[in-house]
Amino acid sequence: MIPLEKIIVLNKVPLFSMLKTEDIHMISTIASEEAYEDGHTLFYEGDIGDRLFIVVSGEVMILKSKEGEERHLATLKENDFLGELALFDAETRTATARCRGPCMFLVIERNDMEQLAHEYPAIAFGFIKVLISRMRNMVLNNKN
């Protein structure tokens, strides 16, 4: 992918959509492109998370183990993202993620993101805005 295409993809991801194009450009410099084949497990439930995955193409199944069996929770598609909390802490993954068909991702490592946010606080502030907006929605949904 050329840098502009990465910017186009990142701009469509809700996590980054509130950031300025200049900041998205910065993030695109630390986003690497990765392709996986059908059935590849991106991570297992309980793994330590340190990467954010943005689905560029393909589908990803989110699975949760219950009584030894994997149950399908959701399917993520183009412009969805997974593992966003891994950008901020090193907690364990709460579910397993597996590719359904060939998939292409943009991947951001926590260390790179931390360094970028340290250099450009506006980016960190943009994330805070997005997370707060998501938190508000969750609170509102709970209320309803």
């Binding site: 992918m1 050329i2 840098p3 502009l4 910017i7 450009h25 690497s32 492109e33 990765e34 392709a35 996986y36 084949e37 059908d38 059935g39 590849h40 497990t41 590719c99 292409m104």
Partner: peptide
């Protein structure tokens, strides 16, 4: 030009 030219290769991993 920098925005339009490929910078890093794609990592391909098979399952």
């Amino acid at each position: 030009r920098q925005l339009l030219m490929e910078t890093s290769p794609k990592v391909e991993i098979s399952s």
